[in-house]
Amino acid sequence: MPRQLEWTRRAVLRLAWVGVIAASALTIEPLVQYLTSKEDRLQSTLVGYSKPLDVNSDWQNTANARVWVKRDSLGVMALVATCTHLGCEVHYHVEKKEWLCPCHGSIYDLEGRPISGPALKALPRVAVELKPDGSLIINTSKQVGMDTRV
């Protein structure tokens, strides 16, 4: 004959312990993710780009998600997609030819000049160096003017 299940105080407390341990086990994976995250380590300010860039190409993303390159009739330029309002990463919308900030709705035109929203300054342009083999080295620590081309 099976033992009758009795909800004694001891049984309830034991079940509570099982619940506590199970809940703790659920925190292990997030904790490991948090502790092993390398997102805040120092990154090199230099970014490379080796694919061919056509004249009047659209903005192309580099290995660094926030660094974009483009070539127009005058030369090559590089842009950092960090909103000049509060530093969110702005996204390039190919069909509209605009940069949109997901945080506070700033909009920049194709060249990175602010059109609307709280941002007042243009997206920063950074220095590009052309290597002999045609690949690019972008120095994100060195800002340059809007008209600078390489």
């Binding site: 904790l31 995250s37 997102e39 805040d40």
Partner: peptide, 16 residues
């Protein structure tokens, strides 16, 4: 800046 990174980029950093 490290606090901003912690709260916006590191997984579960904002929650902690």
């Amino acid at each position: 800046s490290s606090l901003l990174t912690l709260a916006s980029v590191i997984p579960y950093g904002g929650m902690i």
